[in-house]
Structure formats: C-alpha cells, structure tokens
Design a protein around this nucleic acid. Sequence first.
DNA 1: GATGAATGAGGGTTCATTCAT
DNA 2: GATGAATGAACCCTCATTCAT
Lengths: 214, 214, 214, 214
Amino acid sequence: MDTTTGPKSDPDQELSRSQRRRRNDIVEAALKVFDRDGYEAAKMIDIAKEAEVAKGTLYLYFENKSVLLEGVIQTAILPALEQIGGAAKVHTGSAQELLEHHIRIIAARQASPEMKMLIRLMISAPEQHAQLIRFFHGHVVQEGLELIRSTLRTGVESGEFRPDVADMDPLVLVGSHVYAPVWHNLFQDEGPLDIDRLVEDNLKMVMSGLLVRS
Amino acid sequence: MDTTTGPKSDPDQELSRSQRRRRNDIVEAALKVFDRDGYEAAKMIDIAKEAEVAKGTLYLYFENKSVLLEGVIQTAILPALEQIGGAAKVHTGSAQELLEHHIRIIAARQASPEMKMLIRLMISAPEQHAQLIRFFHGHVVQEGLELIRSTLRTGVESGEFRPDVADMDPLVLVGSHVYAPVWHNLFQDEGPLDIDRLVEDNLKMVMSGLLVRS
Amino acid sequence: MDTTTGPKSDPDQELSRSQRRRRNDIVEAALKVFDRDGYEAAKMIDIAKEAEVAKGTLYLYFENKSVLLEGVIQTAILPALEQIGGAAKVHTGSAQELLEHHIRIIAARQASPEMKMLIRLMISAPEQHAQLIRFFHGHVVQEGLELIRSTLRTGVESGEFRPDVADMDPLVLVGSHVYAPVWHNLFQDEGPLDIDRLVEDNLKMVMSGLLVRS
Amino acid sequence: MDTTTGPKSDPDQELSRSQRRRRNDIVEAALKVFDRDGYEAAKMIDIAKEAEVAKGTLYLYFENKSVLLEGVIQTAILPALEQIGGAAKVHTGSAQELLEHHIRIIAARQASPEMKMLIRLMISAPEQHAQLIRFFHGHVVQEGLELIRSTLRTGVESGEFRPDVADMDPLVLVGSHVYAPVWHNLFQDEGPLDIDRLVEDNLKMVMSGLLVRS
DNA sequence: GATGAATGAGGGTTCATTCAT
DNA sequence: GATGAATGAACCCTCATTCAT
C-alpha cells in the first residue's frame, strides 16, 4: 500500500493530471514573483497567493524556496530556451547562410522573457546558482558560441570568409544579442529594443563591416 | 547654517576631514560587501565590520541600507565610470580612428569591477533602483551609444563608411563589450574573458566584416 | 442505537472485526512512535506509515493526537501493567514470603517496556496527562505501596518484623525497582540494569540490613 | 577596535555586570518555562516575556533554543547539583556514619527542583540530550553510586557490614531517593513526598533490615 | 560623535487537522 | 470507510534599525 504523503514522493513521473496542473500553477506563480521581486525578496506567501494555494501547499511540491527556484528553471526556463534552439541543427547551405541562420536563432533565443529572468536570477545570486550557471555556460552559451565558431571555420575553408576570422572570438558576432536580456531587465521602461532591426544591422556589419570597399 | 546636526545633514559640504575619511571607509566596505553578497543578502553588520566601525555608525552617515547603496553608487561607482570615459571627448582624427578609439574606451569602461557590480545591483533589484537605472541609461549607455552613432554619421559623411551604416544601431558595434560585465558576473569561474582579443576581433569585424572582398 | 457514524462513535462496542484490527494496528504503531520520539516530537504521518494506513484514517479512530495517546495508554499500556500485577492478590504465606512476593511482582512490573514508555509520556507532559497521572498514582502506585504497607503491618502483628517498621514508608522497600523505568529511559546505552540481581540484593537488604548481628 | 556585535562573542568571561544579569534573567526564565512546558513545547517568545526582554535578545546570548537549554543546564542545574554534593568528600568516621552521610547527601541532592527539571528534560528527549545524559550518568549517578559502593567495602573490611554486602548493587540503598524527582514530576499534586521521613526510614532499613533479630 | 545591546516585524518552514474524492 | 492533497496557525530565527550610554 502506498502511504506516502504528497506528490513530492515521486518527483518526475507519477503525478495525476490535477497535480500536474497544480505544480504548473505554482511554477508559473513562482516565475512571476521571482521575476518581479528577485529571488531573495520574493516571499513564499506571495507565490502561494499568486498560485491561489495555501502556503503549505508549496511545500508539498517543492522542498523549499531554493528547490522551487530549481523547479522554475527546470520546468519553465530551460525548456523554453531549448525549444528556440531546437531548429539550429537542421540547416544546410552556404557558410554565410548558415551563419545568418545561427545568429537569428541566437538572437531569438535571447529575446525570450525566460532568458530575461534567467539572467536576472543568475546575476542576483551567482553563489547559490553555481550549478545552474555551469549548466547554462556549458549548454547554452558555449554551445551557441561553438556553433558560430565552427561555421566561421567552415566559411574560411570554403573560401567564403577571410582566413583571419577562423579563430575570431564568436562573441563579437552575437554580443549585441546576448546583451538583449540585460537590456530588457534594465531599460525596458526607457524604450524597447528593436530586435529585428538589431539582427539586420548586426548581420550587415558581420558580413561586410562598415568600410567602403576600395 | 546649522552645524549642530550630524554628518548626514549636508552630504556634500560640512564633513570634517575625519568624517570624510569615515564616510569613505564605509562606502568602500559597503562596495565590497554588496559586491560579494548582493544587495539583499548583504548584512549591515558585515559592512560595519569591514569598515571597522560600529553598526550604529553606519546610520550616522547613511539613513538606511538603501541610502547606503545610493551612496556607494554615487561615491564609488559612477565616478569610476566617468573617469574612464573622460578621455572620450578629446580625440580627433579619421572617423575610423575615432570609432576605434571610442570602442576601446567603451570596452575598457565595461571591463572595470565597478561596472560588474553596478550591473549586478541594477539587475538584482531594478524596481528599487529605477532612478539609478534612468541615470545610468541616460548618462552612460545612451551617451556611449550616441558617441558611436555620431561617429558613424561622421564617417558616412566623410565617405569612410558605407552610406547604409548611418542609421545602424550602435549597439551592434559594442554588444560584446557591454556584455562583458555580465560575463564577469556569471562565468568568471568558467574562464576569463580575453578583453584585449575581444576588442581586436571586434574592430576587425566592425571595419571589414567577414566576407572576402570580391 | 445510531450505527451510521464511524468507529469513533462508541469506542468499545460497535467496531467490526476488521475495524478492531485496524484500531489495534494504529495503537501499536502509535505506541512505537511515541516511545521512539516522545509525544511532542511524534508525527501523525509517521504513525500512519507505521500502521500502514493513510493519515486521515487515524482521525476516523481517534479524534486527535492527544486522544490517540489516551488510546495507547488505555489499550496497550495499562492492561499490560495490570496483567503483571494480577497475580499479586492470590498469595498466602508468612509475611516475609508475602513481602518478597510483592516486591518481586512490583519489580517485574516496573521492568516492562510499557512502564518505561508510560513514565516517559507522563513526565514529558504532565499537565496534559493529569487524569492519567491521577489514575496511575491511584491504581498502580498507591495500590502497590498499600500492598507493601499492609504486609509490613501483618508482619509486625505476626512478630516477624520489628514493631517500628509498621509505619515505614513503603517506598523505601521498592525505590530501586520503581526507578528502573527511569534508568531504562536514560541509561540503557550506558549499560543495562541487572533486574534480577537488584531484586536479590534488595531483598537481602530489606530483610536483614547491612549490619552484622551483634 | 572590537566591533563584534553582542555578548555571545566571548561566552565565558568578558560579560559586563549588566550583561551577566541579563544572561541570568534569561536562564532563569528559560528554566521556568522549560520546567513548566517541557523543552519541545516551550516557546521562545514565552521565555522572552518571562525574562522581560524581546525575542531577539535571547539570540544575543544563546545561539538557538537548544543552546539555551544547554545554558540552563550548565548555568543553573549542574552547579546546583554539585553544590549539594560538594560536602560529600570531606567526611570521616565509621563506615556506618559515612554511609549515612552519603545517603543523606544523595537524598538532599535529589530533592532539589533542579534535579526535578533535569530528569524531566532528559526523559522527554533523550536522543537530543545524549551528551547531557552521558555526563549526568558519569558524573552524578555513577559517582554517587561509587561513593556508596566504596563505603560498603570499607564497612565490610572494618567488620561493620556483613561480608555479603560488598558486591551489593548500591542502587538498592538509594533507590527511593533517586526516585524522588520522578515523584515530584508526577505526583506533586497528589501529595508531597516526606523526604526527611523517607531518609530516616531508609537508613533504618538499610542498617538493620526489617526482621527481628533472633 | 560613536557604540553595540536591544528591539520586533517579518519570513521560511512544519505539521496537526480537514474534507473532497 | 479510506485516502492524501490541501490548509493555515504556529514557531524558530534573522537582521535592519533604534537609542541609552
């Protein structure tokens, strides 16, 4: 006989439909409150109210505040980022086309509200999120940069790109895009970032630079 | 003028030499602790210990924790940023040289530890730092971008730059540099950012793009 | 009689066979957990798990935690004590033999695990167990002491015991035995109590004292 | 400059007069509340009110509830017990006199309110007080029993006591006295224990037993 | 001015109890 | 009847702030 108490007992699979919904409500409420107040200042009672459950209910689904944050990241943030990036691998074409594709993907990924919040959480309390940061660095940042890097090399090999760009730091190609979540966090009130225009301008510069051709 | 009240009464003028020193000790201690722990997690007692004063003394110089943070920003962070940027205005030369100069200045400014901390503080609690963010946006970000923008126009007018870069979003020219403080906050443990190489690669790309010239 | 209500309605009579079994499982589980953790620290969920029922089921049989404790005492503890003492009344013989018999009975009774637990529960929360304590005092302690007292008088009357022991406090005859449950609660880890030897030594002393006979 | 915060920083020596008084107030308040409610049920806020300080003040003097308990034991309970026992070592005389002296000392020690509370605390939560119990067993119980044991041997050697009492378990000589704190915890409402009479009766029995001398 | 002991509001967490299924 | 998810009162502890010395 299963006499375990709550949904916490089997964290991954065996939640009933209504429990999954409840868990999701909590995650979304937490996402909202963490996003609004930051992790430290966020109050469990506010998350509970936002999710329309009692305070104790939060602890049926998440061991404590820190685990709830992990849940938010695992359930709401990382999947959202991966979805965006999913298409990156199925493209073919010239190195220039490929590079353009990658840059567009990366820019789109950075523009998501999840990325905005992820950046905020990680910067707010890096010590407490060391694991998350390592994961993010390895699986989002480095992976994205590596995509650029390999495309640069492909382009050099194919003769499309100048030889000296083979070991260019990929960050210079996407710096303005990875900065987008920071902009969103800080300057949304001062005026939005025109992502599309940024992408086009970035591509223009990346491909041709600024100088007139002699 | 009333001189019977404490050092708080007139923040700029009426401090004795020793009071100014004391105030400075506190600001530096606060800078260190805010940087290490973040604003929310920073404890007043730790700042007091770091400054080698009693807890109550903090409140003789700063009304409360939030005001202390403002003091840190006004006293230690913003001046440091302006110092770096100070040289920006005294340059002459070709548009290309000028642009290179500005980019180098901006990159250097972003690399400073003060910028790292400023970004962290603002992102951690944007609501509480709305004023600061507005100031930062107006006097650091927009000013820097405007510098780039006007140089782009100058270069177009002088025929150095292609005509279509006149309206280019300046952020694409310095995105990887303004991202540096974020990188420092998050990924210092995973490996440093080679700022110098980033600048050179950035300049290379900015000027010439990646494509081989036909 | 109303039979629509649950098993709680009439604690003695109207339980089906399976309900009696269920009730017993709960009482035994509670006994174990109360004994292990103490009343305050004992968790209802642990008792439910131990009894292999759901938490809510506990409340079908016992109104609340306190009533459950009463149930444990009434159902499991007191009967066990009376069983041991049951034989006390059927003895005849010399006062010395009778006294020896009573002391052995009392010693055995005190050595039981139920007594250990009863003492712990009563001492942990005397205010909440005032009724139980009164019952225990009246029906176990005083009854036992009275048995000793009357035997002392019998022995004095019969000339077996010295006259001045007629109104001796009976506790001095069994103090080391009634202390046994305390010892078990506190010092079991430091080494067991040799009850049999204690009884023999006690009897030796009780009968003859320590002094050599002149 | 000493910028440490509170009196906790140097737990043993350097408390000012008023701090010592404050600490003592808290210990006494805690003693009272622990005694009244038991450790688990005792509330920090009640202790604070009893000591007429704010809740936070408790934590200036004691790290947490558990440490406060240790403080109560170290400061109020153990010294009280040792005071009573202090005289035990300075006695000389016949073995009989010595034994009587020791028994009186032990009886007096057990009768103290501190002992009552100590027993309650240890029995209520033995797992959490394992260290205290070991200390108590080693330094109070065994030491007391050893005193009896060695006196018995002395008496046997001197010919005062019968030879067969040399290995007698000392607990049988003082069982009714060490039971006293248990009695006080449980049965104070049902009638007090007449300690003096208990001691006299105990001595009478210990020396001469009950039987008439042939 | 400087100190640091004292304050007490506030937050995270636990767990006895309830009640819809 | 049986279940266990949900509830929310209660409690420990922290720490920004105050104020008597």
